[in-house]
Simulated assay, not measured.
Amino acid sequence: MGVILRWPLLATALVCAASVTVTGLVSGFSRAFMMGGPGVSTPPVLGHPLMSLAESVVFVAWIFVLTWKVPPRVAWVCVAALLLVSAHAQYFRLSYLYYRTDTVQMALLAGAVAAGAGVVLRMRDRSRAALAAAAEERARRDERLDMARELHDVVAHHVTGMLVQAQAALVVAEQDKDKACELLPGIVDGGTDALGAMRAMVRTLRDNGAATATGDLTSDLQQLVEKSGLPVRTSIELTEDVRPELGRSVLRLVQEALTNARKHAHDATNVEVDVRLTSAAVLLSVVDNGTTRPAHSGGFGLVGMRERVHELGGRFFAGATGEGWLVTAELPLEVRA
């Protein structure tokens, strides 16, 4: 048995031994051990009511501490011993105010109240610990989801570009090798960008998740459109700077929408990107005229975008328009509590 379990038993044994000793000194050890015999004269100090009150306080307080802090198996053994010794003391000691049965009942009632209070506090502490553990688990889950979204949004964007260009190179290689070779630098650039994105993500994780947000959203969006390889028309109206974290989310949403268009809307001849700032939110939309998009791609792009928008307290929609595919989001400038 460990030290943590031994000290409550030792302390309880000490309290019980002291109480039995006082009972013997007050009423006679023969009576205290239920062997019969003449009584004794009560020592003035031990028989004083304040001493009895102090002893009762010790019993009640120790029962309270046991049921609150000590492991249940040990606690209830100690509490049972304390209640028996307390009832023994009240029964064999002479009282001029109450009958013996009354004092025994009052002692047991006080011990039961103390034990109940300790159990209540124990349950409260367990509830708080459970809530703290649940909150920690939610934080870890949110962190994993954020990492998954970043991995999908950043790396998948570049890898998709490489894949599209490699497929195009395979198609034209049989007829025009020179034209196929012209696509190789784009594949190399895509791989370089993907590697850079991975390194940036690793740096972010090593810096305790302090992800670098965009500093110039308009410029970042223009660069993103230029590298997309799609026939994109842009309309960006950002009259003032937005929070870096919000700008980063806008950039990731547009990036993922363009990635989806490049992967699934193979016949698209026009993609329109619209980003504008209002007094309360950033509004963005990405729409294409592709009609060959599959009903379900099996990826996590739309799920990640929806989660990102909802975390910011915004609204999100993605779906077919009859003439293509539309992704739109409204991101509030200030996150609502």
Results as ranks from 00 to 15, higher is better:
Arg306Leu: 00
Thr278Cys: 05
Leu312Ser: 07
Val303Thr: 12
Leu283Ile: 04
Val303Tyr: 11
Lys263Glu: 05
Gly314Asp: 09
Ala261Val: 15
Phe316Cys: 06
His264Thr: 06
Gly304His: 11
Arg262Gln: 07
Ala268Val: 05
Glu272Thr: 13
Ser285Asn: 09
Ala265Leu: 07
Ser279Ile: 07
Thr292Ala: 14
Met305Ile: 04
Val287Lys: 08
Ala261Pro: 11
Ala318Leu: 12
Leu283Pro: 02
Phe317Leu: 00
Val273Thr: 07
Ala268Thr: 15
Val309Thr: 14
Val309Met: 12
Thr292Phe: 06
Asp267Phe: 02
Asp274Leu: 12
His264Asn: 13
Val282His: 03
Val271Ser: 01
His310Pro: 01
Ala281Phe: 10
Thr291Asp: 00
Val309Asn: 10
His310Gly: 02
Thr278Tyr: 13
Val282Thr: 07
Gly298His: 12
Arg262Gly: 06
His296Ala: 11
Arg315Glu: 02
Arg315Phe: 08
Ser297Trp: 08
His296Val: 06
Phe316Gly: 06
Val275Ala: 00
Thr269Arg: 10
Glu307Met: 06
Asn270Gly: 02
Val273Phe: 03
Glu272Ala: 04
Arg315His: 12
Ala318Asn: 13
His266Leu: 13
Asp288Asn: 14
Val286Gly: 04
His266Tyr: 01
Leu312Lys: 13
Asp267Asn: 10
Arg308His: 11
Gly304Trp: 10
Pro294Glu: 10
Glu272Cys: 03
Lys263Ser: 04
Ser297Met: 03
Lys263Phe: 11
Arg276Thr: 02
Asp274Ser: 08
Thr291Asn: 01
Thr291Cys: 00
Lys263Asn: 04
Val303Ile: 10
Leu277Met: 09
His310Thr: 14
Ala268Lys: 12
Ala318Lys: 11
Leu312His: 13
Ala265Arg: 15
Gly313Lys: 05
Ala281Leu: 09
Val271Trp: 02
Arg293Ser: 05
Leu284Pro: 11
Ala280Asp: 11
Glu307Asp: 15
Arg293Ile: 05
Gly298Met: 08
Gly299Ser: 11
Ala265His: 05
Glu307Arg: 15
Gly290Lys: 01
Arg293Met: 01
Arg262Ser: 08
Ser279Ala: 14
His266Val: 07
Thr278Gly: 01
Asp267Glu: 11
Ala280Gln: 05
Val275Ile: 14
Thr291Lys: 03
Ala261Phe: 04
His310Cys: 04
Gly298Glu: 14
Gly313Glu: 13
Val303Trp: 14
Val287Ile: 13
Leu284Met: 14
Thr292Trp: 01
His296Lys: 00
Gly304Met: 12
Ala280Tyr: 01
Thr278Leu: 08
Gly319Met: 05
Gly314Arg: 07
Met305Gly: 01
His264Glu: 06
Pro294Gly: 12
Ser279Cys: 02
Arg308Tyr: 06
Ala261Gly: 14
Ser285Arg: 07
His266Phe: 03
Asn289Lys: 10
Phe300Glu: 03
Arg306Asn: 10
Ser285Val: 02
Ala318Ile: 14
Leu277Val: 10
Thr292His: 13
Val282Gln: 05
Ser279Leu: 00
Gly290Asn: 07
Leu283Asn: 03
Arg308Ser: 12
Thr291Leu: 05
Val273Asn: 04
Thr269Val: 12
Val286Ala: 02
Leu302Val: 10
Gly319Cys: 10
Ala265Thr: 11
His264Ile: 03
Phe317Glu: 15
Leu283Gly: 00
Ala281Trp: 09
Thr291Pro: 02
Asp267Ser: 00
Ala261Met: 05
